[in-house]
Amino acid sequence: MSTDRDYLAAGLALGGLSDAELAEARALSDSDPDFRAEVAAYDEVMAETAGSDEPAEVSAAARAAILRIPETHEQETSAEVQTGRPAESSPEPASTSESAPPAEPVSLAERRERRGGRRSWLPYVAAAAVLIVVAGFGATIWQQNQRQNELEADLAATQQQLDESTRLMEATDLRTSTAELPEGGSVTVLSSESQQLIRLSPNDVGPAPSGKSMQMWVIGDSGPESVGLMSDKAVTIADEKFSAGSVFGITVEPEGGSKQPTTDPIVAIDL
């Protein structure tokens, strides 16, 4: 194998080839079994390299979600696997005219009568078909608009979260604290008084006990203020004023939360 081929095989497994090199390497891989074997060997090298890393624990929530995948996702059929285009719509159904049984012979008069009858209802059928198509298009467009609106809202929320995270991480007075929860798991709280931002990241936190909710509070001079119910997702709190000496707390409350804490905090972190 020449030097260039060595580089191309290694680069195809590693990534980072230029477009022209990638095209050349793929062409070689498709046409040359020796080259393909070289690439497979380098793929294995990178798999071994990645496999030598220290494993990372998967959270209980991610584990549960992944193990539910077989219940929520359908597998590609073998036909889709061959084409490699699972999202493609299925082809038009084949015409059944060839296999349909031959029609009974009818008289010319009867045929004319039938044809005339067809003429009488044909416009209504056509109109109905047009209505169905128009309604279908309308529904599709509406669904697409809805989807687009949802995506735009998601994007805006993500962008806002990223902006807030950036502000938080750049804050000179950033504080970081981690606390264990009595029922397992932990929460990490990042806060900045100058940016008036609090970021809560749960880690391996299970659901609240049945009939209960975990509620977050910012406790300042004027007492506790609810900042929402806690889930297993990270959240940024940007709309609750706090100062040095304020405390971030989590309590277990009746399902749906309370106006004021009814139990002692299971977590209390100085902000």
Binding site: A40, D43, M46, G51, I69, E76, V81, G84
Partner: peptide
């Protein structure tokens, strides 16, 4: 893992190991 479940029929043992396929 969703892709593994839905598309692992695309894994071809003649083109490499399962681990290499997963890592890629």
């Amino acid at each position: 893992f969703a892709e593994v479940w839905t598309r692992c029929g695309r894994f071809d043992p003649e083109r490499g190991t399962g681990r290499a396929w997963l890592i890629t």
